[in-house]
Design a protein around this nucleic acid. Structure first.
Lengths: 157, 157
DNA sequence: GATATTATGACCTTCTTTGACCTTAATTAA
DNA sequence: TTAATTAAGGTCAAAGAAGGTCATAATATC
């Protein structure tokens, strides 16, 4: 984890883990100071690492008393899965978006690490690009199929 | 073993042997510098010498903090997987042949039932046929990648 | 000599970092 | 009670820092 963005991400996830309410509130300026970086670097980290796919919501407020609130969402297993599928996947899915979603499923322990690695493998642009007209469409389709199969009771004991 | 590519290969395998995690992380630029060669020479070595068939997986990341990660696959005793990849799978694979192979891997407890279901899903003709010119070629490629990934030590503890 | 392998360089894509400038909210002064 | 000031956070473009690709040149190999 050499770079700044990764370190900030790590730090935020660490304090999120400690917060049992499931969210943290802090100031952008404080973070920027803490990591000796431009304040906009914080926004960069938030928009690239704390996305909906990855299971986070970020709220904020400007002006005096302004703040950032980073909320970690849980996936309760009550069929909201299907909604997630439809909303998040759509008709097309880039490698990056697919990987984000897989990481999320891994964090939620819906996938094992081995499964995550296998699935990431088959979604790799490198493997698909020259063989398929539209890899994004295939990924969306496969992702839905995979999620459906994961939900099957008969294979989850 | 006089040429550059061979020396780079040798060097990488040496440091891989020293790494008890089963992988090494390093920078392409550093390697190119180290061997006084064009950076693309490193890619040449990676694509010709560190393939799945030969028992390696390579991951990478661009941009600041970018890196190459070369993973040495945990070799099964007789190099069973390598043979499987080269001989059994070849360049094309029908749904039927793929399913047979998956069943066998399941029987041998190389795959879990869930994994088998997931993988069969993505190999289904129904999902691939209308989107891809040659599903058999894609299956062969994906199957090799999957086999490689399940040999990774870092995800099998 | 023909073919296969290896090496290079020009150009491309992706990811990160910074800084200048903008918007919004709270506080304070007139 | 406005109006000005201050204190936040937001946006965007440009520069920097990696790795990737591909055509071509150079070398081995047969």
């Amino acid at each position: 984890m050499g770079n700044l963005a990764d370190r900030i991400e790590e730090y935020l996830k660490m304090i999120l883990d400690d917060a049992q309410e499931g969210y943290v509130v802090l100031q952008r300026g404080f973070l920027a100071e803490f990591f000796s970086c431009a304040p906009s670097q914080i926004n960069y980290v938030l928009t690239t690492r704390f996305t909906a796919e990855k299971g986070y919501v970020v709220e904020s407020r400007r002006g005096g008393g302004g703040y950032l609130r980073i909320i970690k969402l849980g996936l309760d297993p009550e069929g909201k899965f299907q909604r997630l599928m439809a909303e998040l996947i759509g008709e097309e899915m880039s490698q990056t978006r697919a990987y984000n979603l897989i990481d999320r499923l891994l964090e939620e322990e819906i996938l094992t690490e081995r499964e995550a690695v296998i699935i990431k493998g088959i979604f790799a642009e490198r493997l698909l690009a020259d063989l398929i007209p539209n890899p994004n469409e295939l990924r969306a389709r496969l992702m839905k199929d995979i999620l459906a199969n994961i939900c099957r009771d008969d294979v989850n004991n």
